[in-house]
């Protein structure tokens, strides 16, 4: 007996998918606007990507190729289990290569390889409301979005500069989409913010617990908020990736021993592996082989 016959294609029932697709269409029509949707219980806890999974389940078709990343990596728990989930309930082909994927579900990174037309990036979002920590009332934040009252967002950046001397927000850095809605790009590092601007790929954001979907259609203006005298900047790293030698990519710090030895490696594992396969080497790349 085939136990998978018990599940509808991609887990969700067709009515639910239709409801979510409507929300997605509305979100694409109003870039950056948070569309409420009736988020379903998923077979995973909130905070593990229930919003992203529902968006992916609603847009995936039998011919799609799925890639899932968690903090840039294809081989971490969240990424492996969501990939396995869709391989089981939708029997789609999965991949770890950015270039081969048609849908990429991501937790907190945008792949280093430039996305192209036809690809869709699905973000898992914990808290969709950028104004939440300054204004706890949902009725009030909705009104602020409706009336385009975004002074408060700069209050947060002001506080950063007053406290730290520079804008210390490094992730979930607020952006203005198509000159209208201020949006939280989910907790991606601000390093990735410029990649959202005029992206060829469709970007969808799903927040399961908060029951919101929002989107950035391809070729949309995405501007990171800043001050005239404290312009937006991305993180810079002193060294290239220790394994593949890549520069101008986002790096993770890895502690090597208890005597303070550390290395910086690519957060995007697929990008790192592709570069190694192409013969690029970093300063510690021989180490593993030696051990």
């Amino acid at each position: 007996m085939n136990i998978q016959a018990d599940y509808n294609f991609a887990y969700l029932d067709e009515q639910t998918k239709r409801m979510i697709r409507r929300a997605i269409l509305k979100a694409i029509a109003i870039p950056g606007y948070q569309v409420p949707f009736s988020s379903r219980e998923m077979p995973m806890p909130y905070g593990w990507g229930t919003g992203g999974v529902q968006v992916t389940a609603s847009i995936i078709g039998p011919d799609d190729v799925l890639k899932v990343i968690d903090q840039g990596a294809d081989d971490t728990t969240n990424a492996v289990s969501i990939r396995a989930f869709f391989a089981k309930v939708a029997r789609v082909q999965t991949t770890t290569h950015t270039g081969e994927a048609t849908i990429i579900q991501t937790r907190h990174r945008i792949p280093e390889e430039q996305l192209r037309e036809g690809q869709t990036l699905v973000y898992q979002v914990p808290i969709p409301e950028p104004l939440r920590f300054l204004e706890p009332r949902e009725t009030e934040t909705r009104k602020m979005h409706a009336l385009e009252e975004y002074g408060l967002m700069h209050v947060k950046l002001y506080e950063d500069i007053a406290t730290h001397g520079h804008i210390a927000t490094t992730y979930a850095y607020p952006v203005k989409v198509e000159g209208r809605y201020v949006m939280d790009p989910s907790p991606t590092p601000k390093f990735d913010n410029p990649k959202m601007h005029m992206s060829e790929a469709l970007q969808l954001f799903g927040a399961g617990r908060e029951k919101r979907i929002y989107a950035i259609p391809p070729f949309t203006d995405v501007v990171s908020l800043d001050f005239d005298d404290h312009p937006f900047e991305v993180q810079k790293f002193d060294k290239p990736c220790a394994i593949c030698g890549a520069e101008a990519v986002y790096l993770d710090e890895v502690i090597l021993d208890d005597r303070g030895k550390r290395m910086f490696v690519c957060s995007d594992t697929d990008n790192c592996e592709s570069r190694q396969a192409a013969g690029h080497r970093g300063e510690l790349s021989g180490m593993e082989a030696a051990q």
């Binding site: 002074g151 700069h154 209050v155 947060k156 002001y158 406290t163 800043d226 001050f227 005239d228 005298d229």
Partner: peptide, 27 residues
């Protein structure tokens, strides 16, 4: 008042709300 943000930001909020985007001037 916004009790969780600094006095400077409390005073500056209205300026930022009407479009002032220069930190030095606001401060």
């Amino acid at each position: 008042l916004r009790m969780a943000v600094s006095a400077g930001a409390n005073v500056g909020e209205r300026l930022m709300a009407v479009g002032d985007r220069h930190y030095g001037n606001i401060r």
